[in-house]
Write a protein that binds this DNA or RNA. Structure first.
Lengths: 140, 140
DNA sequence: ATAATATCCTAGCAAAACACTATGGATTGT
DNA sequence: ACAATCCATAGTGTTTTGCTAGGATATTAT
């Protein structure tokens, strides 16, 4: 039930972009240095983030990445699902194939509850939310 | 973020015990056969469940396992944590070591939310709850 | 133009986790 | 005695994780 480093690093990296001026592209080198993450590893993660449309890349000198939308318009669910794949505890509540038992399966009822609980968190929390919450704690 | 087969099989197995007469010990062979799980693998899981006090073993002929308490007195959280270890998405919200940033870390705020969400589900759902929910769906 | 700065893409790989299997010993009911 | 169980440790193939390597491609600055 642990989030892998893909989700951890990726979210941290995207939050760096979210706390930044959106007009200015930030190179991976800088994000990697700031968050103490391998630049090469981050490249993989940003490839996925770009393909899912969450970030925009700018190649060449003075290039880098920017968020594709405002931080208040990107949920952590979108980031995490891009990097971690489905966030469900079991395949049978993925929407795809349900086993023959369906809702008469006692365990599936639990997996469904867990799925709903995590969905409600990640789909209602935006990057801007996290930043403002952290900021509020910082001021105390 | 997936539950492993340890949690899946283990929960299914204890639910078999929960739906059973508590006076009669049930051998692993029978649970394994009913749930289509390897008996040898289940032994590992039940060793952990016994050590955590959730089931009681009865050795020898006519032996087997029983729940240590009534199904309404055992939460799925107790079962899953025994088999899966901590259910937190990240180590830093495990209660143990928090990184230097503490609550000013934006990502940690998310991990905390996720932890609280899953905790509230697994700690408030008992084996009896799952059985009665499945039973209700069965009758429809 | 050319050099410098970036992203882009594919491949590979060591370590850890996962999902078991194997084997033999200990205990109890009949 | 004997069969049915649990108990315990060791081993093992597969998959996932968490990277590193190397080069191609695009853009900007000079």
């Amino acid at each position: 039930m642990r989030v892998s480093t893909r989700g951890e690093y990726g979210l941290r990296a995207v939050l760096v972009l979210a706390g930044q001026d959106r007009q200015q592209a930030m190179p991976l080198r800088e994000i990697a240095a700031r968050e103490n993450i391998s630049e090469q590893y981050l490249e993989h993660l940003f490839r996925a983030l770009r393909l899912s449309g969450l970030v925009v890349s700018h190649r060449g000198s003075r290039g880098g990445y920017t968020l594709s939308r405002h931080p208040s318009d990107i949920t952590v669910g979108q980031v995490l699902r891009t990097l971690e794949g489905s966030l469900t505890p079991m395949e049978c509540v993925d929407g795809k194939q349900v086993c023959a038992h369906g809702d008469r399966c006692a365990t599936r009822l639990l997996w469904k509850k867990l799925k709903d609980a995590t969905d409600s968190v990640v789909d209602s929390t935006t990057l801007a939310d996290l930043l403002s919450m952290a900021d509020a704690n910082d001021k105390e």
